[in-house]
Design a protein around this nucleic acid. Structure first.
Lengths: 198, 198
DNA sequence: ATGTTTCCAGACAGGTTGTTCGCTAACGCA
DNA sequence: TGCGTTAGCGAACAACCTGTCTGGAAACAT
């Protein structure tokens, strides 16, 4: 049923039109007609697929997150030091490949709903990982796992924004990972050459 | 000239109506009429003050940032270890006091524009502080000051979001500051009881 | 008390939304 | 290949929202 070539074609066209237009003009300024026009699709057809443009955006974001999840899962097994390593590298790769979409999501287009989907998905995975880690080490963590997850996600999103908004990658992904790892291990004050207060 | 009691009254009413309604229904779903109705103001009057609802939101956000700045400035002098300390505590206090507004800004309502105003204001102050610090210590920072500032702001915003979205504060502000300070000084792996890899 | 400024209610054209209608063309499958 | 099914099209619809402009009433500062 979902095999129909016509359906795939119009959905794809609407998706691409949305991403391109949001990138150029911002989400709120768009009318459904703008989107269908660029997608070369009748307006009535749009409404047979999505309730409104928010639903389209949400769907596109959900697909992206599924793709990311699929890519992250095997990477998680391959790292000795938790997140900052192979998984982050994988995420940067994904962001490079779907750069336009990452951009508009991370900009908070659509009243920040897609961005919230993104951060919450990341935070869920992170909190899980942190909890699992302290259990394996049989240590009562000194810092609340949820708070720690939020800190990590905030850092991650921030770096991704910075990374993806540059025309050319401002530095190689491997270099970014190195810096983040450095920060995670040694803390932030050290990074600015500030002696640690006692 | 800007002393007219009527002006202050309608601006205040519009501001409160906006914040309340965005919190309840989200920014994009609101019409100007919704706002003026709750504010008990004629629709025509709205347009004599603001071009559209985005301008109203931007104005409200700008006022908040001015207030925050005023509160942060004296706190900066009172801290030995940079940001994470008195300034962050002050910020949490401000967020508690203007909680509803902080919520909608940090949610990224309004296509993330107000949130971007917020983060950029913070990043500017942070980058300045980081640069000044490494100059005072006469050390070439190992990590780019702008990137570091972005990371810090991302972390800060993320924690703020988490903090204001709970009905009751999930932990006292002092406790949050203690943990963040800990992370900044000692790094993240330590926090979950994970031995540092060589 | 007075001249000025703001607010109000109502009306306006132009655009957007979401839904509905037959009709046509492309589709999957046997 | 042919057939029954399904998606797409274009047009039309009321309901709503936007931004602007009136003239008159009310509140303001001085």
């Amino acid at each position: 049923m979902a095999e129909d070539r016509r359906i795939r074609k119009t959905r794809r066209a609407l998706r691409d039109a949305l991403v391109g237009l949001v990138l150029e003009r911002g989400f709120t300024t768009l009318s459904v007609e703008d989107i269908t026009q660029r997608a070369d699709v009748a307006r009535a057809t749009f409404y047979s697929h999505f309730r409104d443009k928010d639903e389209l955006f949400a769907r596109v974001t959900r697909d992206l997150l599924d793709e990311l999840d699929e890519r992250l899962r095997p990477a998680m097994a391959e790292t000795a030091v938790g997140f900052t390593g192979k998984p982050v590298l994988e995420m940067l790769g994904h962001a490079r490949q779907e750069r336009d979409l990452y951009r508009i999501v991370l900009r908070g287009e659509g009243d920040g709903k897609p961005l919230r989907m993104f951060t919450e998905a990341c935070a869920r995975v992170a909190a899980e990982e942190f909890r699992g880690r302290s259990e394996r080490n049989d240590v009562k963590p000194r810092i609340d796992a949820d708070l720690l997850a939020r800190v990590w996600v905030g850092e991650q999103v921030s770096v991704l924004q910075w990374w993806v908004e540059h025309e050319a990658p401002p530095m190689p992904a491997e270099e970014v990972v190195r810096m983040l790892l450095d920060l995670a291990l040694r803390g932030r004050y050290w990074a600015t050459g500030f002696d640690r207060p006692s």
